[in-house]
Nucleic acid binder design. Structure first.
Length: 561
RNA sequence: CGGGAAGUAGCUUAGUUUGGUAAAGCGCUACGUUCGGGACGUAGAGAUCGCAAGUUCAAAUCUUGUCUUCCCGACCA
């Protein structure tokens, strides 16, 4: 492609509305432009990068035996009502009516349609297994789009679905996808981790996430420094601290004027924080419950909702609290209170601890588990850095991540809801075992931009750069330089190398800056020394910076790519 | 949905406290000088100051409402 004849622009200043590194650079480089919050258009350079990513995924999916299809984006809303997900998507779904007032939505996801497609084929066990996928835009009216292409309301996603007769073969299909994902992300050059995750709205047996490691990640990744354990903090199990059991002492009410937080308790009563219990009040599907965790622990909402089997969990309001007890949030405890009590595993191990007395200005000391009634016990706290790994004796550390892909073992949840069955060898009707697998295409693009950029701009890996090589002509009015550049351009194209020729009548500095901003991995500079057949080769990542004879340059480039 | 910040030329911003009809840099056009790291000079084009009401002789500036965008949180395959 010749730049003088291209729809191409760059922006010199930082973009006011794009604070994230990737969002700012992608807009500045003219790859994308924001049209509304979480809605972007892709310009030629940006589209090339997006297509490169799509093609890598497509190749790996095809290699894994999956077949590409394309579902509609416009979907009748009844389809989601049938699977009982209309309400669970709720306001996230973009809804619209046709001329007959029939309600449609812009597809937020496509499980239902894939099940319907699968029904066309699946009659007996002989029709299984298979895997179908698409690369298509999804629409979700996110509460808060952010970070440029990382969280948008319209986004391109590769989603794949595997269909098997049973769990065992389903496992094989699942592993094939995990391999395809690893290959894809490796080829894109992303620094990623695979972690266990919550199954969320999708439901099912197991979910694993592929998380790109970046500072602006939305998820906390829990990693072990000595084994391969990796988990999203949402579901990272906590090994309850071992405590030596003490002899039970007599519970006592003590006056603690003005003491409201655990820090206050520790200071005022001069007690070890490991001897304190924090009581949190939640509204769980409308019912007020108390959760007990060790004083220095943070409660994990995902775990608590799961333990309780509720879908809507939020901290109780002051009015709600007043209904069960006449005390402030900082003075609560499990003694003599009319609400279900959920206790963390760690608290179960504790003895003679301190907790609120449900009376402002008072605490109980020497409280023990048998002093109150527990409704449920379980692991309901967040793991912390430095905690011991749940699988080995290693230490836990955190990373921040952006979810770029995930894999779900769905099981038979959707096939049962939507009657996707097959006849087995014994002529018995059985539900199909499903898996589903997603990759956020533009999100990968943003994650790579986030991971690989410097003060001058983007630094794309050669596998997804819009062009592999850029030829920068210093003086386009110099016939020799222009001829050399044109010739080289044709030769590189013949070799199948994607080359951009910057033949704009601009000053050298402008062209250098632009090539760096858009992140072309290799730059060939054609300048004065072109007279003597000498060119310059520079890699964007700084590894290569050399003068080279024109005759050698093609071989040199090929060895780099 | 809660909290914070912001909307003035294509881009980045000044001006708003203390009302008097809009300014700069970049970009753009023309000419000249330049020409290997976002050149310089001269001359231009380009803004009903997000929108709507209100106060006032007079509103970018004050008041109210509204829309939009970003950030923190809640939420989120």
């Amino acid at each position: 492609m010749k730049l003088s004849n291209c729809f191409f622009y760059t922006i010199r200043d930082d973009i006011k509305d794009e604070d994230s590194k990737s969002g700012n650079l992608l807009v500045r480089s003219g790859m994308v432009k924001k049209e509304a919050s979480g809605v972007y258009m892709f310009m030629p350079m940006g589209l090339r990068v997006k297509r490169k990513i799509e093609n890598i995924i497509r190749e790996e999916m095809d290699k894994a035996g999956a077949n590409e299809v394309l579902m509609p984006a416009l979907i009748p809303s009844e389809i989601f009502q049938k699977s009982n997900r209309y309400d669970s998507f709720g306001p996230d779904m973009f809804k619209l009516n046709d001329r007959n007032e029939r309600e449609f939505c812009l597809g937020p996801t496509h499980e239902e349609l894939f099940v319907m497609a699968a029904k066309e084929k699946i009659k007996s066990y002989r029709d299984l297994p298979f895997n179908i996928y698409q690369i298509q835009d999804k629409f979700r009216d996110e509460a808060r789009p952010r970070f440029g292409l990382i969280r948008t309301r319209e986004f391109t996603m590769k989603d794949a679905y595997s269909f098997d007769t049973n769990k065992e073969t389903g496992e094989i299909s699942y592993q094939k996808m995990v391999e395809a994902y690893k290959n894809s992300f490796d080829r894109m050059g992303i620094d990623y981790r695979i972690v266990r995750a919550d199954t969320g709205v999708m439901g099912g047996d197991l979910s694993e996430e592929f998380q790109a490691v970046t500072d602006i990640g939305e998820d906390v990744l829990v990693m072990c420094d000595s084994c391969s354990f990796g988990s999203n903090i949402e579901v990272a199990p906590v090994k309850a601290m071992e405590v030596a059991k003490e002899e039970k002492k007599k519970m006592e009410l003590v006056e603690t004027p003005g003491v409201k937080s655990i820090e206050d308790v520790v200071k005022f009563l001069k007690v070890d924080i490991n001897k304190t219990v924090k009581t949190l009040v939640y509204s769980a599907d409308g019912e007020i419950i108390l959760a007990l965790v060790k004083g220095d622990r943070e409660l994990n909402d995902t775990k608590l909702s799961k333990l309780l089997g509720v879908s809507n969990l939020e901290l109780a309001s002051e009015e709600e609290l007043k209904k069960i007890v006449d005390a402030g949030f900082g003075s609560l405890g499990p003694i003599e209170i009319d609400a279900k009590i959920i206790m963390d595993n760690e608290v179960a191990n504790m003895s003679n601890f301190v907790c609120g007395a449900n009376k402002d200005g008072y605490h109980y000391i020497n409280v023990n588990v048998d002093d109150f009634k527990v409704y449920k016990q379980g692991d309901i706290v967040n793991i912390r850095e430095g905690d011991s790994c749940p699988h080995c004796s290693g230490k836990i550390y955190f990373k921040k991540g952006i979810e770029i892909g995930n894999t779900f073992k769905l099981g038979t949840k959707y096939s049962e809801a939507l009657d996707l069955n097959y006849l087995d060898e014994k002529n018995q009707l059985k539900p199909v075992y499903m898996g589903c697998y997603g990759i956020g295409v533009a999100r990968c693009m943003a994650a790579i931009a986030e991971q690989m950029s410097d003060e001058y701009g983007l630094v794309w890996p050669a596998s997804i750069a819009p062009f592999q090589v850029c030829i920068t002509v210093i003086n386009v009015k110099d016939e020799i330089q222009m001829n050399v550049a044109d010739e080289l351009y044709d030769e590189l194209k013949e070799e199948g190398i994607e080359v951009l020729l910057d033949d704009r009548d601009e000053r050298a500095g402008v062209k250098f800056k632009d090539a760096e901003l858009i992140g072309i991995p290799y730059r060939i500079t054609v300048g004065k020394k072109a007279n003597d057949g000498i060119l310059e080769l520079k890699s964007r990542n700084g590894d290569i910076n050399m003068e080279i004879l024109k005759d050698k340059i093609i071989d040199e480039i090929k060895s780099c790519l």
